[in-house]
Design a protein around this nucleic acid. Structure first.
Length: 344
DNA sequence: AAACTCACCAACCGCGGGACC
DNA sequence: CGGTCCCGCGGTTGGTGAGTT
């Protein structure tokens, strides 16, 4: 498999911006052939253009093609690009197949000039979609503040209740969702879906179903808003970096174990709500997320499985927060993956 | 008003890989 | 089966216009 020298290196072949006349010549030539190019290499000579075939192909596919959509990207476009990039990486051409009328080059440029910068400003690595370690978050304002205080400050700026305990609790559960998501992205395992629902419900209930702090925070910034869609709850973290909680992994594992054992015992993934979510909100205003989870839910759950019912009770309020359901996310990703594989 | 900086994006470059001989 | 042709892709560059000093 060798690489032939490109005709672009031939002397006298024009480079640089295309003139209107060249555009017209190229379009007319391709239209004359019914939109079929045949050989790009042979096109310039046939069309009477002093360009290399590669340059002609690029000009056509990125600019002159009649089905190209012009104008700004919509919020939906942007949201889709971010999600697809999280899934596919820099597969611009594959991403472009999901945005009608957009070229890979256009999407790539838009990513590099807009989205990438937004993510960096948020402290999110645009390559991995993970939260950057604090020492790399150069673009974040208030970076000297501890994470919980940042959340609290943002909540306060929105007129929400300033309750760092709640915020930290929510962060822990979001982290749990992320951990679950990373281990279940490629399947729709009912156990992981159940646990994801469980944790999502708990997070939502803690924050209040109608005045949830987390979604409001995420929606404050336009970029954060687009990232707050369902899929991101099963994606690596856009939310808090919980590394300051040493027991995090243990707690997560305990939660998963507790929920899984409940499923095995009951043979069901849902149960009716026995008490309002506000009950937990009142009970669990403790200082740290670790204290909250281990004292009130996880450790007792391991000793006395029925306590896990408390988490099952939280499933219902979760429905009040659209797009948080992992099943919905699974379906979203499944569709995208199927489309991608079909096109590959 | 000139100089400078920054953001945007069209276009270029080089490589991988499929198709064909 | 190896060599060549060609296409398509992702990364990068550089021209241009807008904004700032």
């Amino acid at each position: 498999m060798g690489r032939s020298p490109c005709c672009c290196h031939e002397a006298g072949v024009k480079k640089g911006p295309w003139t209107e006349e060249e555009d017209k010549t190229l379009v007319e030539h391709i239209q004359k052939r019914g939109g079929h190019v045949g050989s790009w290499r042979g096109l310039p000579k046939a069309a009477g253009l002093n360009r290399c075939g590669k340059s002609c192909r690029l000009r056509w596919t990125n600019y002159l093609r009649p089905d190209i959509k012009r104008g700004n990207f919509t919020d939906d476009d942007e949201r889709l690009i971010v999600r697809l990039h999280a899934l596919l990486g820099n597969k611009w051409s594959t991403i472009a197949t999901h945005l009608e009328g957009r070229t890979d080059n256009e999407i790539k440029n838009y990513w590099n000039t807009h989205i990438r910068k937004k993510l960096l400003r948020m402290g999110v690595d645009p390559v991995t979609h993970q939260q950057l370690p604090p020492e790399h978050q150069h673009h974040r304002s208030n970076q000297h503040l501890p994470e919980p205080l940042l959340w609290a400050a943002a909540a306060a700026s929105l007129g929400g209740q300033l309750d760092t305990g709640l915020i930290m609790q929510a962060q822990l559960l979001q982290q749990l969702l992320q951990a679950i998501g990373s281990s279940s992205n490629n399947n729709t395992n009912s156990t992981s879906s159940f646990v994801a629902n469980l944790a999502a419900g708990a997070a939502n209930a803690m924050l209040g179903s109608s005045a949830s702090i987390v979604p409001n925070l995420l929606l404050q910034d336009q970029t954060m808003g687009l990232l707050s869609g369902s899929a991101n709850y099963l994606q690596p973290g856009y939310l808090g970096n919980m590394s300051n909680f040493a027991e995090q992994d243990v707690v997560q594992q305990q939660l998963i174990n507790a929920a899984t054992s409940t499923m095995a015992r009951d043979g069901t993934s849902s149960s009716a709500a026995a008490e309002p979510a506000g009950h937990h909100q009142q009970q669990q205003h403790c200082g740290t997320a670790v204290a909250f989870v281990s004292d009130d839910a996880v450790a007792p759950a391991l000793e006395r499985p029925p306590v896990v019912q408390e988490f099952a009770d939280l499933l219902e309020p979760m429905e009040q927060l659209p797009n948080l359901c992992s099943l919905e996310s699974d379906s979203f990703w499944k569709d995208i993956l199927e489309d991608s594989y079909r096109l590959c």
